[in-house]
Design a protein around this nucleic acid. Structure first.
Lengths: 156, 156
DNA sequence: TGATAACCTCGTCAATAGTTGAGGTTCGAT
DNA sequence: ATCGAACCTCAACTATTGACGAGGTTATCA
C-alpha cells in the first residue's frame, strides 16, 4: 500500500475513516466534541486521535447519551494525542458510571412493570410506576417538572 | 369529598390528573397516542382510561422509547375502557421485550467498554466497540447507515 | 498551469417532543 | 344573561442531531 496512514487528517479523511458524514464532523467540531486546527487556506486538519474520539461519541450515542453530556465526559480526553492509559481510565470510569445508572433505571422500570402484572395493579391507584407523576399532577398545575432524572450531574 | 371522580374527563382534568400540560394532551392526541371524542361545542372529552395510557406513555419515555413506537405498542390497548387482564398482559409482554432488548444492548456496551479497559484496546485497531462503524467507514462513502439498531420492529 | 476534487461558510430542512401565543368559542356559575 | 375560566385551532418557536445544497476557495495531480 502506497498510502501510509497519515497522522494528520483532513475532514474528508476523518469522515471516511470514522464512518460519519463530513457535515457531521463539522457539526461535532461546532459543538466542541472534537477539535483540530486550520491550514493557511482555512481548511480543517485533525490529529488522528480524533478518530478515537468519534468512535467514543458514536458508542455513547448508541447508549442514548446526548451530545452535550458526551462532550462533558470527553473533556478529560486530550484532543491532540492518543490518550494514554490514565486518560483512558479516568474517562471510562465516569463513562461506566453513566451507563450503570441508565441500566439500573431501565431494570427498575422493567421489574416494576413485571410486578404490576402480578400485583393486579390494573387499578393503578397505587402503582409504583405511575405515582411519581400522578402525585405531582394531583397537587396542582405548577411548573412542568419533567422527570429528567438523568440531569443530576454536578461536577466531579 | 363532594367531587366524585368523573368517568369522563376534559382536557384540563386529564392534564391535571396525569401531570402533563394541556398542550401535551393535544399533542398526544394529534399523534394518535390517545383518543377521545368531542362535545357538541367541539371540546375534547376522554374516558378515564386515558390516564392509564398517559401513565404508560410517560413510563415508556423514561425508558427512552420514542413516541412513534410507544404508539405502536399502545395500539393493543383499548381507548374506551380500562384494559382488562388480557389486554394488559398482551401489552406488557411486548413491552417487557422492548425493555429487555434495550437493557441487553446497554449491558453489552458497558461490558465491552470494561473489556476495552482491560485489553489494552488503546490501540483501537480491533476494538469490538469501534469496529462496527469503522468497517463501514473504511469501505467507502455510501449512504449514511445510521446505527438505529432499535428500529428493527417488524409487525408481530 | 490548469482542471477538478475537496474544502469553506451559511442557510435551510428534517424529525422528535413539545411550549407559547394570538384570536376566537364554549361552559358553567351566579 | 353575562362574565370569566376553560376550551378551540393554528402557527411559530424551542432544542437536539444532524443532512444537504448554493456559491465560493484551496489543494493537488498531471
Amino acid at each position: 500500500m502506497p498510502k501510509k496512514p497519515a497522522a494528520v487528517l483532513t475532514v474528508g479523511e476523518v469522515a471516511r475513516r470514522s464512518g460519519i458524514a463530513v457535515s457531521t464532523v463539522h457539526f461535532y467540531e461546532a459543538r466542541g466534541l472534537i477539535e483540530g486546527w486550520r491550514t493557511e487556506g482555512n481548511q480543517r486538519r485533525y490529529h488522528r486521535a480524533v478518530l478515537r474520539r468519534i468512535a467514543i461519541i458514536r458508542i455513547a450515542q448508541r447508549a442514548g447519551i446526548p451530545l452535550a453530556r458526551i462532550r462533558e465526559a470527553l473533556a478529560d480526553l486530550p484532543h491532540d494525542h492518543v490518550p494514554n492509559a490514565r486518560d483512558w481510565q479516568k474517562f471510562t470510569d465516569e463513562w461506566r458510571a453513566m451507563l450503570d445508572d441508565r441500566i439500573t433505571r431501565l431494570l427498575q422500570l422493567r421489574d416494576q412493570i413485571a410486578s404490576c402484572i402480578g400485583c393486579g395493579c390494573l387499578s393503578l391507584e397505587d402503582c409504583p410506576l405511575r405515582n411519581p407523576d400522578d402525585r405531582l399532577g394531583e397537587k396542582g398545575p405548577g411548573p412542568r417538572r419533567l422527570e429528567l432524572a438523568e440531569n443530576h450531574h454536578e461536577g466531579t
